[in-house]
Each structure stands twice: as structure tokens, then as C-alpha cells.
Design a protein around this nucleic acid. Structure first.
Length: 288
DNA sequence: CACTTGACCTGTCCGC
DNA sequence: TGCGGACAGGTCAAGT
């Protein structure tokens, strides 16, 4: 599911909902979803309060007063949903995509002292949640290897171009999906950005001019900002911290629009496979 | 080293 | 309505 804009939307929601909350209980379905030992949980999670909610790449970081951090990767179908005490057991209000929680996809449940809850749901079980000392978070393999945040103003084409060019022999789509090149781009925003920059997703990196790569970085930043503004994309499972959908998909130009008209030139959008992923593009305005 | 493919899981959709 | 296969927003290990 979630790419940078979705995780950022969840982060913003949780920041409003759980900062200052005290955690009083934790349960998990399997050790794969939450591998920490019970004694670590008792010592560094239970009784602590949430001090901050951060994001790095597609990883969500919930800092605790114990100087530990709950590190969560939602992978394809993960959700972090908060339910206030007044709704507990009653399902979600309004336009939520979520029914009564916990449900069969619930992997981890945190209970706060006011009897509100945070649920980590994950249909496909690819995601995980781990308790780590806050200082140790940057030391995990993923954090050591992951590239720069695309929305940092200091991240410009000066840095982007040499990083993409390390993947000279592969497709540009594979290059920008590579989290060590830059952080946070996934399948939806890769397709959307490449359309914006008029680059065919299968173009080989070494064949692309620097100017094209400059355009691409501009598009990545623009698309990510718009997607955050729209609360992310709900293609299937994604919901924010309140269980609600994101609406970027209504503004998508190519993603999941195969058979429809390109909004720029009117040509029928095609779907193919690039870098092992379903890939949407306009065969006329996105040239190799 | 650079690059590609399959594996991890469950659910849904599509064609027969 | 049932059944098999393909596919789904991410990452990693293992293969070439």
C-alpha cells in the first residue's frame, strides 16, 4: 500500500491523535508482526507515553518516553488505525473504510490509558512493528541504506542525478523504485511522475539526458506534495489513522487508468510490465 | 558489482 | 457458483 504520501498522512493523523497518550497494554497475533520479547515490552513499552511521531522513507516512527521507538513498516497492506474510547467495539464512524476493530487482519493492538486503541492491521502479513532504542533506529539495515527524502529542499538534481545514474543499465522506473536511490517512491507515484516528466518507464537510465532527470525530480516532488495534500491514494486497502480513504487516485493521470484517455494528448493509456510491476503510461507522450 | 526474479501472504477479480 | 490463475501500493534473498 503505502508510499511516502500515505505514510506521511498516517504520521500527521497520529501526531494529532496519540501524542501524550500512555500505553497500558499490547497484544499481537504472531511474533512475525511484533518480534520483541515480552520482557522488553514490559520494560520499554508498557507505561510509557508517546512523545513524537516521525517518518523516514516509508517507515513510521513512534517515539516513546522510555527513549524507545516503535518502528513500523506497512509494506503492501498495512494500516495503523486509531479508535477513540467512545467508539471502541462499535466500528468506525463516517466514511471510514474500516469496520469493527479488531478484525481478522489485526496483528498488533495497543491500548492507551483512556481506553482508546491503536490497531496495526495487515492483511498480507508483510508488514512489521518493532520496538527499538531510539538511538538504534538509524543503525538498522534499511535506514543505513535508504536514500534521501525527496521533499527535503536540499535534495536537488545535483544530488539526484548521480544517484540515479548509479543504476545506468536499468529502466528509469526500476531506478526510482530503488529505495537506496531516493526514499519513498512506490509504484503509483513512479508511474505518475514519469508521465509528468514525459519519460517512458522502460527507458534505460544511461539513455536519458540530465535535463530529463531534472524534470523527473521536479515531477516526483510535485506529485508527492499533491498526494499528501489529497491524503494519499486508496487503491485497495490504504486508510489514514482515522480509517479514512485518501483521494489522490481521483487526480491520477495514468495510474490504474489503462484504456482511458491521456489527459495531455488524448491517446489511450496502456498498461504493461516494467521492473516486475504493473506499469501505466501514455504511448505517445512518454517516449523512450 | 549490477540487475532480475521469486518469495513472503491473503484476498479479489476475471475467464472458463 | 466453482475453480484456477493472475495480480495487488514493498522489500529482500538468491540467482544470473
Amino acid at each position: 500500500m503505502p508510499e511516502l504520501p500515505e505514510v506521511e498522512t498516517v504520521r500527521r493523523g497520529l501526531q494529532k491523535l496519540i501524542i501524550g497518550n500512555q500505553i497500558v497494554a499490547e497484544t499481537h497475533a504472531t511474533d512475525k508482526s511484533f518480534p520483541n520479547e515480552a520482557n522488553e515490552v514490559a520494560e520499554f513499552l508498557l507505561g510509557t507515553t508517546v512523545t513524537n511521531v516521525r517518518r523516514r522513507a516509508k517507515v513510521l516512527l513512534i517515539d516513546l518516553s522510555s527513549k524507545y521507538t516503535l518502528v513500523t513498516h506497512l509494506k503492501m497492506t498495512g494500516q495503523l488505525v486509531y479508535l477513540g474510547a467512545e467508539r471502541f467495539g462499535a466500528g468506525h464512524p463516517n466514511d471510514s473504510l474500516i469496520g469493527v476493530l479488531p478484525d481478522k487482519s489485526t496483528r498488533v493492538t495497543l491500548t492507551f490509558s483512556d481506553n482508546s486503541h491503536l490497531y496495526f492491521n495487515d492483511q498480507r502479513k508483510f508488514g512489521w512493528m518493532r520496538l527499538l532504542p531510539t538511538f538504534a533506529v538509524p543503525e538498522i539495515d534499511f535506514m543505513k541504506r535508504v536514500g534521501p527524502e525527496p521533499l527535503e529542499e536540499v535534495f536537488t538534481s545535483r544530488e539526484f542525478i548521480p544517484r540515479v545514474r548509479r543504476r545506468a543499465g536499468t529502466s528509469i522506473k526500476a531506478a526510482i523504485l530503488d529505495q537506496t536511490v531516493l526514499a519513498g517512491v512506490g509504484n503509483i507515484y513512479a508511474d505518475e511522475s514519469l508521465w509528468g516528466a514525459k519519460i517512458h518507464p522502460a527507458s534505460i537510465v544511461r539513455e536519458l539526458s540530465d535535463k530529463k532527470l531534472v524534470d523527473l525530480l521536479t515531477e516526483i516532488k510535485t506529485v508527492m506534495l499533491l498526494a499528501i495534500e489529497k491524503g494519499g491514494s486508496t487503491d485497495r486497502n490504504y486508510v489514514n489513522a482515522e480509517g479514512k480513504r485518501g483521494s489522490y487516485i481521483d487526480f491520477a493521470r495514468v495510474f490504474r487508468r489503462e484504456g482511458l484517455d491521456c489527459p495531455r494528448c488524448g491517446t489511450t493509456i496502456e498498461k504493461t510490465r516494467v521492473a516486475g510491476r504493473g506499469t501505466h503510461f501514455c504511448p505517445v507522450c512518454q517516449v523512450q
